[in-house]
Design a protein around this nucleic acid. Structure first.
Length: 419
RNA sequence: GGGGGAGUGUCCCGAGUGGCAAAGGGGGCGGACUGUAAAUCCGCUGGCUUCGCCUUCGUAGGUUCGAGUCCUACCUCCCCCA
């Protein structure tokens, strides 16, 4: 990672101090620009799924910080680029999505991140645009003559995303090959429409950002800038936010605020300070204090990280609720109300249900076979007591305080409520 | 258009001689130890009405008591030639 320069402007200084800085085109000039005027900057997100996940959080935080520093963020939804598919970081061609799916994804993504930015007409209010607005309408030959002539295939072949596919002898369709041209075109289009001067992105998009800057010179005779953030990995080197259960999604219907809070609560020791800087807005002095706590006190830092990060995404109330549910569950061992629950007919329970079936029905395990294996490994508990026998039953007599607490390991719990 | 090669457990990579629920990794999950951490060790990592049955090796057929393994056609991809 390149060392961050000594920035003068408020925004870039904070950006770097928070650990979000990776690289930048023309750092001195961009710094002067930020010091002198309100900068319009954009970040694009593709609509490949119905929710973003924590991998995009650094980018979202960048938009938020721009806004807080009085600049103007543009949230670009890639309704158009998604129709091509970004080859970056993918071995295989993505499945082609229909326009309807893309539109539905877009709406869903927006719903999940609405707390993060303030949209409107004010000077530093965020703008929402969809690149399908212009990309959908392009005409093949005029586009090639106006824009395509500025792209050298020789250079495009050296783009990381393209090179990787070629080296691995993985297919790269012509459709995908055009992705970086579209992204470059977006940048110039946003300059023309909104005076956008800066594109921020993850470091993996650097090649595409630079293409946009070049195109700005050629089509609009303007100096555009790029600012990238580092790829966030955990202290043990794993890509953040991917588990077997899937990505840590931002939309609450995929990952509940409680589970989201838990995700941050389980941060490795070595990541606490870094994550507090990146994903919360606490002052540096407080972060320094938290990251220097020793031993078990480190958990205090993790709880604050969890609550702050959850607040930014889901609001302070939901975060507080998640924190309280976690406290009751882990620190008091109680069957806290806020845990996920599953309702079952009283009559069925009265007759007695084998534990593996109940685990499967409630969604705690994906199959009865899996539940059986967990029982054999001692990983499944009823009311905090490990189940010993695969054939064990639960019935009404196991109901305590209106529910049976079924647990998978120490962290996953579900309340079975008879109705 | 011609020639050569590849597609394996739906997380990924990858062995596989006609008897295979299919080696080995990585990743993930569970247990022990802890602090809801890391490291380490152990276990699990197709489904079910589980001492048994069912479904899996690109797709569809065929040969065989038996097919991931052999044959045929098709699909997708890679490489070379044109």
């Amino acid at each position: 990672m390149p060392a961050a320069p000594q920035f003068q402007s408020e925004f870039l200084r904070t950006f770097a101090a928070r650990g979000a800085y990776y690289d930048c085109s023309g750092p001195e000039e961009l710094d002067r620009l930020f010091a002198k005027e309100r900068v319009t900057a954009y970040i694009g997100f593709d609509c490949t799924a119905d929710s973003l996940h924590v991998g995009s959080l650094v980018q979202l935080m960048t938009l938020r910080r721009l806004q807080q520093a009085g600049h103007k963020p543009i949230l670009l939804m890639g309704g158009g680029t998604t129709k091509a598919g970004d080859p970056s970081g993918k071995d295989d061609t993505r499945q082609m999505l229909t326009s309807e799916q893309i539109e539905a994804n877009k709406q869903s993504i927006l719903g999940g991140i609405k707390h993060l930015l303030h949209f409107g007409d004010g000077p530093s209010d965020a703008i929402l645009v969809d690149n399908a607005e212009w990309l959908d309408r392009l005409e093949w030959l005029p586009f090639l003559r106006e824009v395509g002539r500025h792209f050298s295939v020789n250079r495009m072949l050296t783009l990381e995303s393209v090179k990787l596919r070629l080296e691995r002898e993985q297919p790269l369709s012509f459709l995908e090959f055009n992705y970086s041209i579209m992204q470059a075109y977006d940048f110039v289009e946003l300059y023309k429409r909104y005076g956008c001067r800066l594109q921020s992105s993850g470091s993996d998009q650097w090649g595409n950002v630079v293409s946009g800057i070049d195109l700005g010179h050629r089509l609009a005779n303007v100096q555009l800038y790029g600012l990238t953030t580092p790829l966030i990995t955990t202290a043990s080197g794993a890509k953040m936010g991917k588990t077997a259960a899937g990505a840590v999604w931002l939309n609450s219907d995929r990952v509940s605020p409680y589970d989201y809070w838990q995700f941050w609560r389980n941060t490795e020791d070595g990541d606490v300070g870094r994550f507090l800087r990146l994903f919360t807005e606490l002052p540096e002095s407080e972060i320094t204090r938290l990251e220097n706590l020793e031993g078990a006190e480190r958990n205090d830092g993790k709880k604050i990280l969890a609550t702050e990060a959850t607040s930014i995404l889901h609001g302070r109330e939901a975060a507080g609720l998640a924190a309280e549910t976690a406290r009751r569950t882990f620190e008091e061992g109680a069957s806290a109300e806020g845990l996920p629950s599953f309702e079952i007919e009283r009559a069925k329970l009265e007759a007695g249900i084998p534990v593996p079936n109940l685990a499967q029905m409630s969604g705690l395990t994906s199959s009865t076979g899996e539940a059986r294996r967990f029982i054999q490994g001692g990983g499944l508990s009823v009311n905090n007591v490990p189940v010993k026998d695969v054939k064990a039953n639960v019935s009404l007599s196991d109901v305590k305080d209106g529910a049976i607490k079924l647990s998978l390991g120490k962290k996953k719990h579900i309340l079975i409520k008879p109705v």
